[in-house]
Nucleic acid binder design. Structure first.
Lengths: 206, 206
DNA sequence: CCTACCGATCGGTAGG
DNA sequence: CCTACCGATCGGTAGG
């Protein structure tokens, strides 16, 4: 939590504005958050914000890109070990969910982007992360194990989908069915996915 | 489109308010939509809205529950034929995506609900559809075919997740990678899911 | 169902 | 980086 150690005064203020904005956008949406709320939480006067950002939308875009969890989750996933596809995918999924789990609420910003900005900013974000995602995909198909004949882009998409289906059903259902639907849900999801993409090779008992 | 045929005057107005509100919420979010915009699109004066709804939030909640696609998609899915799990799931997924596809934008209201209302209204919606969803799950496990040992709640959740992962990756990626990632993506998704939940039994070539 | 209005709050800026 | 302000718009209501 000593992230401000080497920052200049101005950089620190900027970072405080972004943190405040991120929290508020996550909680109330874009139009549900006011510049005054951001200023108050960042401990600055309203007018002061405009020394660092041109507009409210620019704050949102900056938060969405610079604070995106993939910045640290992708490297985390790359550290996953495992010589077989199964080991690697299982390990990477764990890293992914654990890494994102710390800031699960960030997904709200993606929803806001889709709804309130009609996905205008997605192309920029896409360009930032595309290369690393493809590297990751390469590692999967180069690991040991026989994949069913699924086009690589579909595989990537299904893997991303695996994550969202886990998170979204978590958000939608966790408040309704606390215990039973919950248990080991991620393990099962990964299991279904693995069993779904591999030719045979039943996964080892847990 | 003759839905107003048997409605009274008041019911027609109410329905027009809801349609207007649904469109605007989908496009701009909850806080991004004003009561004046709703009134204008529904061709009524601002004050007139309050003859039908107590507040803006009540309009949102009514739209979210009464206009929810599951009202007609669940019955559609129940019409799916097929004596084996595979046939049935494949057919039902097709019905689901086709049915929802007509009003894909509705998913935005679910995002709004999650972000701007923190899922406050989810319990009500859940209660409306829960019984039918469980009936559907029963039909799957009673069909011919051997399921891997996956708890029923997890199976239901994975099926819901299948849908969301398809839709969300569609929203997130379709604007970036028009053709290649797109092709037959749903077929592949269903394929991975089926292969993932069934014991063996390779799916027939298309 | 409409007109006319309420107080509150919005994003943003001038000027220092 | 703050104070004080701008015009515009917000959700909602009184009264008819």
């Amino acid at each position: 939590m000593d992230e401000n150690a080497t920052l200049t005064r101005g950089e620190r203020t900027r970072s405080e504005i972004m943190t405040a904005a991120q929290q508020l956008f996550v909680q109330h949406g874009y139009h549900g958050t006011s510049m005054r709320q951001i200023a108050q939480r960042a401990d600055i006067a309203l007018g002061g914000i405009y020394n660092h950002f041109d507009s409210k939308e620019q704050i949102f875009l900056t938060v969405l890109t610079e604070m995106h969890p993939l910045h640290y989750v992708l490297p985390l996933m790359s550290t996953a070990q495992g010589s077989t596809i199964e080991e690697f995918v299982r390990e990477a999924a764990k890293q992914m969910v654990e890494g994102v789990g710390e800031r699960l609420e960030f997904i709200n910003l993606i929803f806001i982007e889709l709804v309130e900005f009609k996905g205008e900013h997605l192309a920029q974000i896409f360009n930032i992360f595309f290369p690393r995602i493809m590297e990751f995909a390469q590692r999967i198909i180069q690991s040991d194990g026989e994949l069913r004949p699924i086009p690589l882009p579909v595989l990537v998409r299904a893997y991303i989908g695996l994550f969202f289906s886990y998170i979204l059903t978590e958000l939608l259902l966790s408040k309704q069915l606390p215990p039973e639907m919950e248990q080991d849900a991620l393990d099962h999801f990964v299991d279904i996915f693995l069993h779904g993409i591999l030719v045979e090779n039943p996964p080892p008992a847990e």
